[in-house]
């Protein structure tokens, strides 16, 4: 009878083989080396989206590190859930999520697989930033997907608006102060400076846009993601290029948008991560401006600078 070679399983082989012992030893040594290496000083903050990361960088300062899981050029609904994202998640002291189901397509399994009890929903290191802001477009009644990919808890794109950013910064500082009391004063002080700058910016930008004739303060957005921006700057939404949230534009709907745009001075606005062919064609056919706004703060960019890039581009298009 031929014998079946069984390797690696102690109950069958009778005892651990030398190779298995060496493998276990190497793994344990790796654990000790990298475990020691990752025990860096300071609070470890992970943010799902670049804007939240930019706010966190300013609030955390030099008291810790901030890692962002996605890029500004990436649609926050559809971040690739690479297993490598589990590495910072597994070591995080605090996770900042946008919430309102914006990350629902990629984050929940990662939270479970990260094996980090602190950052589970409800845990001390789980911070849903949407709990700090005034939510807009919260559905009043039941929602159904026949209305598109609607968010049952309201429009989640609040990070486009500085007053929301200020509220997130202050609430984040309070949370960090509890996690890391030794640096509490620094967190609150830095958040307050940021808040003051953001609120001053909110006021001055609103005044700047109020000076534009109302007819020119009209936008056609690709996705229903500018709600907070419109609310802040007093803009009017003429239409969205998507017929319903998350539903790709159809020829019939685009034709209807084209009809609406003709004779208006609307500006077509979309984030850098959305398809551009339809927007470019609409702008071309109506001689309207197409404004590509940031999807979020760039790496190391300040949150206020990212907002200013957005409003400067919009303002320039509307006064032209």
């Amino acid at each position: 009878m031929n014998t079946l070679r069984v390797i690696g399983w102690p109950s069958v082989g009778g005892r651990w083989s030398g190779a298995t012992r060496r493998l276990v030893g190497v793994i344990l040594a790796l654990g000790l080396v990298f475990g020691a290496r990752t025990a860096a000083a300071g609070v470890r903050v992970v943010a799902t989206l670049p804007d939240l990361g930019a706010i966190a960088r300013e609030v955390v300062g030099d008291a810790g590190t901030v890692t962002v899981l996605s890029f500004a050029a990436e649609d926050p609904h559809y971040v690739d859930p690479r297993p490598t994202l589990l590495v910072p998640l597994s070591r995080a002291d605090l996770l900042i999520v946008n919430g309102m189901e914006l990350e629902v397509g990629w984050l929940p399994p990662m939270l479970v697989n990260a094996r980090n009890p602190a950052i589970q929903p409800g845990g001390p290191g789980y911070f849903d930033a949407s709990t700090a802001v005034a939510r807009l477009e919260v559905p009043k009644g039941p929602v159904a997907r026949s209305e598109g990919d609607v968010h049952a808890q309201g429009n989640p794109h609040y990070a486009y608006e500085p007053r929301s950013g200020a509220a997130v910064a202050m609430t984040l500082a309070a949370r960090l102060a509890r996690l890391d009391p030794a640096n509490a004063q620094g967190y609150v002080a830095r958040a307050t400076v940021l808040k003051s700058a953001l609120l001053a910016f909110a006021t001055s930008e609103r005044a700047r846009f109020d000076a534009i004739p109302a007819a020119r303060r009209t936008v056609v957005s690709y996705h229903q993601s500018l709600t907070y921006l419109e609310h802040w700057l007093g803009l009017t939404r003429l239409a969205t290029i998507e017929p319903l949230p998350g539903i790709p534009p159809s020829p019939k709907h685009v034709a209807a948008v084209l009809s609406l745009m003709k004779g208006s001075s609307a500006v077509v606005v979309q984030e850098e991560y959305r398809p551009r062919a339809t927007s470019e064609r609409l702008a071309q056919l109506t001689s309207c401006q197409l404004v590509i706004i940031p999807g979020g703060a760039r790496e190391a960019e300040r949150y206020l600078d990212r907002l200013r890039r957005t409003t400067d581009a919009l303002h320039a298009a509307m006064v032209e």
Binding site: S130, T131, A132, R135, Q153, K195, S196, T203
Partner: peptide, 17 residues
Amino acid sequence: DAGEDQALPIPTGGDSP
């Protein structure tokens, strides 16, 4: 401490589900 007078209110949190 900072002698700051903040006039604009911060939006407050929304309702929880």
